[in-house]
Design a binder for these strands. Sequence first.
RNA 1: GCGCCAGUAGCUCAGUGGAUUAGAGCAUCGCCCUGCGGAGGCGAAGGUCGCAGGUUCGAGUCCUGCCUGGCGCGCCA
Length: 575
Amino acid sequence: MIRDQIRQIVTEAIASAQLSGNLPQIEFPPVEIQRPNQPEHGDYSSNVALLVASAVRKATGERANPRQIAQAVAERIEPGELVGSVELAGPGFINVRLNDRWLQQSVLAIIEQGNDFGAIDKGVGQRWQVEYVSANPTGPLHYGGGRNAVLGDTLANLLEAAGYEVQREFYVNDGGTQIQLFIESLYVCYLQLCEEQDGLPQRNLEIPEGGYQGAYLHDYAKLVREQVGDRLAKLDRDDAIAELRQIGREIVVSDIKEELDELGVTFDRWFSEQSLYDEGLVDQLLEDLSGKGEVIKRDGAQWFLASKYPGNEKDEVVVRSNGLPTYFASDIAYHYDKFVRRNFDRVINVWAVDHQGHIPRMGAVMRALELDPDRLEILLYNLVKLIRDGQEVKMSKRSGDFLTVREVVEEVGPDAVRFMLLTTGPERNIDFDMSLAVQRRNENRVFYVQYGHARICSLLQRALQNGYQNPEEMPEDASEIVTLLTDPAELTLVRRMLEMEEQIELAVERLSPHNLTYYAEDLTKTFSVFYENCQVLHSEVPPQLARARLLLILAARTALSRVLRLMGMTAPEEM
RNA sequence: GCGCCAGUAGCUCAGUGGAUUAGAGCAUCGCCCUGCGGAGGCGAAGGUCGCAGGUUCGAGUCCUGCCUGGCGCGCCA
């Protein structure tokens, strides 16, 4: 990364100044490189002199002049291929400006890197898992789950760009009471359908208490009947339900999968909770933990002694007194599987904020399993409020039920959904204005960015029509003609593009995929300024300069399309 | 009551590895437009960064207390 190179250069300058006696032989803190707010302060800056001066004063009581220290360091930084100039500023900042020549050549580097542009090697050799959505398989996804899907998927994209080996997983809660209720409800619907359609005697069964009754159940029931006819309706209830379990699970899971597909969200693995019971892992772990005194019997139930661990006030039931395990029991087994069997270096679970109380308990589980709790990270996100025509929307007009992810995607399109759900930090509430998201004007940030990309494409297209050489064919004299890019608008555009790797690093470190939306807008804005200031296909523009600008534009397309794809959006060539 | 999160411009929000003059979009006002898609661009105005203390040479950012709002505190998931 460029910033690492700058850091290296500054660090070496310190060592060199110390060797020559211009700096005291004290230990310097690790050099931090920042991005100044003001462009006049250069591309990068370091406050290392301020830190050292303050450290000296604390250690010796003597006053040290940070400007003098900065001066000694700055003197030792020779402008070169990468660094254009170095300046002292303010109380003792070392401001570094990139070499114009280097910026110009970067245009070609960006084009060459293409779809890998911005990739960094931060995570090379590490296997991470992102578990997201993991909604109960009892029906279509509630619109709020869309945020989970977008956050998880985008984060996974970012991690891949940062060099991590990433596994995307959906945990299917097909082992608990909810799916049981769902299957029983589905059974009733199916039975009623068969009674109507096949003239079977009425049994007048009702949806069980706490069961599901959404309109979608009838669609599912139809699918069941298409698959097996009225055969299950003729069986005993228990036998029918046992068989329906598999069929119903398949139907709902494939429905959810399809729904997420429409949003561009995919998974490497759909992990079955039930499988943890089937293979006996849940029982085995409860036994192990009992043996270690982490799980005890009390009041007829089995408890995990979470309160032994920091942040936990209460213990958790893992097996109820009626003998049925709670979801928490399988969660222990699930995380054992993730960390011990599959040995992920780190796992990120994406959870809605109403699950926050579960976080300390999982920390306790990690410790009880003698695992480093830092290997498990939770990305919490807040709720989504949907707005249409200035009014909050909760219900589906079509079904009268809750609004689903599918309906929102159909209404505003997957790109707008993804972008809009990434416009704020995850911990904030978000008001998603669906009316705005479909408008073709600049208030709609999605369109602003995608339009920018389309305009770039159209410009490149026009260039070909006008007989210019296709910049994708990288001209022989490319590295020569890019030196004609000297306009501030041109160089600013290059600078902005080169921020990509830092944006990726930052978003990964903070688990904050929403940084991408701001970067995408920035990039688009910077392109617009260039576009406004620098003509390309115009008779007054010298042909060589036009060719150079076409290369710059191609690089801009590369960068912008890369960000859009990281966000899981399309980069349209025309709109 | 306890815990977690949020409170930054009129509105919607970035910024929270302390650091050089706190940012963007929209809305408002003014300007650029006979030049590649104006679905643009430039500029102005607009802020006690919830409040009060504290740490620091330096705090929107760290610490403490408080206020407001959301969420959580089940043998639910």
